[in-house]
Write a protein that binds this DNA or RNA. Sequence first.
DNA 1: CCCATCGTGCAATAAAGTTGCATAGACCAA
DNA 2: TTGGTCTATGCAACTTTATTGCACGATGGG
Lengths: 142, 142
Amino acid sequence: MCLQCDYESLLRASRLDVTDNRRRVLEVIGNNSYPLSAADIFQTLQRSAAINRVTVYRILDLLVAHGLVERISTGGRAAYFGLAPNEHHRPHPHFYCKRCGQMECLNPESLTLDSDAFGKTFPGRIDKVEVRLDGICKNCMR
Amino acid sequence: MCLQCDYESLLRASRLDVTDNRRRVLEVIGNNSYPLSAADIFQTLQRSAAINRVTVYRILDLLVAHGLVERISTGGRAAYFGLAPNEHHRPHPHFYCKRCGQMECLNPESLTLDSDAFGKTFPGRIDKVEVRLDGICKNCMR
DNA sequence: CCCATCGTGCAATAAAGTTGCATAGACCAA
DNA sequence: TTGGTCTATGCAACTTTATTGCACGATGGG
Ligand SMILES: [Mn+2]
Ligand SMILES: [Mn+2]
Ligand SMILES: [Zn+2]
Ligand SMILES: [Zn+2]
């Protein structure tokens, strides 16, 4: 959940036309405290007003391409989506429960790694560093 | 590439019957210096002797379940497979080139993170830590 | 008004992986 | 040897997740 983010402004800052659907997709992602799958987002949106599944995928691609949303891989098949790191959100690792499929955001301090130093010596372009822990969450443990 | 691994012994040590197909799948994975997709593995195997696509998937599942092979996620849709960490192979991060789809194994020292300490305080079970860098590889850069 | 562009919907398609079912060989007990 | 059971494999069908092609309506500038 991002209380400091104004989603319309975020869209405009990326020079994207603000449409209802784009704002709604970004809101669902930004108002949630953990990343969601495209199916989750689609279902949530459907509850308030009709939207097409393909439109959701296209908007997700768009928001990822413009750096507003981050595509996060899971140990499973579907991608998850969360707000991309920005001034209010530092990059952080995620935990993925392979039993219930819920993803958790971990504290940015909890696991640190010095990728800047590594990037200096790497002979390619690094766009993103993803740290994911897989396992069974607290709820699914008992 | 693992020069120290005897694939038949690895299978037997996991109490798996040694079949031609299982040995061949494990060999393709172990003899390669970077992780491969199921499709890559299937194609490679086809070149030496016929095998069914489904058999490859089933063997991969089996080897992953027994901890001989590691399933590695990419920024894309298909999973990649590499030898699981063992006494000869320390866990290490990977780099995934989103242009050519090639995955590289990075040096275990290159990016370190203290997940043991974190695990102590986490109220769930952590089975695996995956660190992946996404970007464009040296070859695709120019 | 005309035209171009854009956002969206809907149907079809694609990519990656999974499931159901049949069969052939291995193994074992009688 | 026979009969029974189990396992690995193959093949077809299917599922899940995502993408593409095409149509259409809204918008906005000349
Ligand atoms: Mn997060
Ligand atoms: Mn590796
Ligand atoms: Zn769970
Ligand atoms: Zn490349």
